[in-house]
Amino acid sequence: MFMRNLTVVCAIALATSPLLAEDSGEEKATERTSATLPERLEETGERAPMEPPRSSAEEVGEIDVSSNAFGVGQPATEEQISAIDIDVMPDGQGLPEGSGTFADGKTAYDQACAACHGSDMEGVSELGAPALLGGRGTLADDSPVKTVESYWPYASTLYDYVHRAMPLQSPGSLSPDEVYAISAYILGRAGIISDDPDTTLDADSMAEIKMPNADGFVEDPRPDVGGNE
């Protein structure tokens, strides 16, 4: 009987909850953004226990349960993957179509980046924004200067990170063309590629870039110290 009461309570909750009325814009305006307390069971007033988690496979019924022992999860479609598959690898894998010039990059940089990283990419330490240029040849010094120019081993990382997480106040807002252009401007100013205003970066040229510190990284040799018993 408890189960039936619970079912009734839940059915009412489902029918009336705006959370589940997915397509109604009007109801979305009042959608809760926090959990409600567990429902009460009739008669005893106990709090209802958690609902057993539902398998998305069971709901959609698209999965071949015989090939999926747990009957849990669904195949991810190309479309679903590409919507969030944003990483870019050193060989250029993941770089999107598009291109941008050094000159366009200066415009975009001044607009989107200079406020934190400085108009000459010198960084603004009070903001915690690092310098992007300089420091070549300092990595073995007492005070090494680690920048995109002096330290970053792959140009792909610059594209990936700027596209992924910059600018700080509107991350992920730059178009591929803008990211190519900003990359061209930073790498041009760093003397890693030409600083001619027409210098253009795209997927192919990006993957060709050899960074000054590309060979500067070694495997972890630890344990390197610490007496061994």
Binding site: K146, V148, Y154, G216, F217
Partner: peptide, 18 residues
Amino acid sequence: TSKYTDLMPDGSARQFSL
């Protein structure tokens, strides 16, 4: 690459020191 790598006195950096 740029973070969580360990710069050594010779200017090389240890990577994936996990």
